[in-house]
């Protein structure tokens, strides 16, 4: 089943003092993969600066711009039409448990996936926290385990945007037992990797028609590698599998590889960043009217 979505990412940055020089990088374009194609893309910014694209370390397109025009307000908007095909879910029993484990322990497989197996700053889990975590049973298939892990993480944490920030690590989340999609995802990744299952951080957009948590802003979920099948998306924040409602922008080892906006500027004083996302399915038409309202969220970076 194919659905066409209109995805709009817009941000506004207000500075107390005049900015004399700036460089911004956005990692917000929906990516191309087996299940999605970008049909149309338009970008605009309030400075009318020329943007340019370049791939990041994982091959995802980054949109950058440099300006020396003085300003105090900067607005950027990305509008994309994305054609999404609902991806197939893994079938049980393609490989047996020993076959799966043999693949996960293979040296070449490890080398190919090492960026999604190591424990970084965000995803490392202290020895002390490990006993309380859900691990794969010896006779359990990977897909079965990951679905349980999805439920486990969803149940363990309470959604709460207050206590965490962009630098919060899995260890801190385990202590707080609260967090946002980024924190759910890092914890899921950290535990999956403890089980030698390659797992990566995904940032993207959620269909807003479903009233899911995280749909007003860019969302985060995890993709884990299922032997014999490939990468499957898990959304522990909503306890769902990533399906036709999930539009991926980029993936990486953790949040640091996927942060949607980075900037370096010459200015004094503080600033305020607001950004919002709208994701509107264009078909079927009956679902379309429910969305539309511009979702806004404020975060101080």
């Amino acid at each position: 089943m194919k659905t066409e979505y209109e995805v709009v990412y817009s941000t506004q940055n207000i500075y107390e003092e005049t900015v004399r020089e700036a460089f911004y990088s956005f990692l917000v374009l929906p990516c191309h993969d087996d299940s999605q194609v970008v049909r149309h893309l338009s970008l605009s910014n309030s400075l009318e600066a020329e943007v340019f694209h370049h791939p990041n370390a994982f091959g995802f397109e980054v949109t950058s711009l440099h300006t020396v025009k003085p300003f105090q307000v900067f607005e950027f908007q990305m509008r994309a039409l994305v054609e999404k095909t609902a991806p197939l879910f893994p079938l049980e029993g393609i490989l047996s448990v020993p076959e799966e484990q043999q693949l996960l322990c293979d040296h070449l497989f490890y080398l190919e996936n090492h960026l999604f197996l190591g424990a970084g700053q965000y995803t490392q889990i202290k020895e002390a926290y490990r006993p309380g975590l859900l691990m794969r049973a010896p006779d359990q298939l990977v897909y079965d385990y990951l679905q349980q892990l999805n439920r486990f993480v969803h149940g363990l944490l309470e959604f709460d945007p207050e206590p965490t920030h962009v630098c919060t690590t899995a260890n801190e989340v385990l202590k707080l037992r609260r967090g946002v999609c980024q924190d759910f995802t890092h914890l899921f990744i950290g535990i999956a990797r403890l089980n030698q299952i390659p797992c990566r951080y995904v940032s993207g957009y959620l269909n807003q028609g479903l009233n899911l948590t995280g749909s007003a802003v860019m969302h985060a979920w995890a993709e884990a590698y299922i032997p014999g099948f490939g990468w499957q998306g898990f959304d522990p924040t909503n306890h769902l599998l990533a399906d036709g409602h999930y539009l991926k922008a980029a993936h990486g080892s953790d949040y640091a590889d996927c942060s949607p906006l980075r900037g370096t500027l010459k200015t004094n004083g503080g600033h305020k960043t607001t950004y919002g996302v709208t994701v509107t399915p264009l078909e079927p038409p009956q679902a379309a009217q429910q969305q539309q309202q511009q979702a806004q969220s404020t975060l101080s970076l």
């Binding site: 460089f23 990088s25 980054v62």
Partner: peptide, 22 residues
């Protein structure tokens, strides 16, 4: 390059890794 590495570096050149990669 604060875009690719330490984001708060003021000594580097934002975007130079992109130019290098190309």
């Amino acid at each position: 390059d604060p875009m690719a590495f330490k984001p708060d570096s003021l000594l580097g050149v934002p975007g130079i890794m992109a130019a290098y990669k190309k």
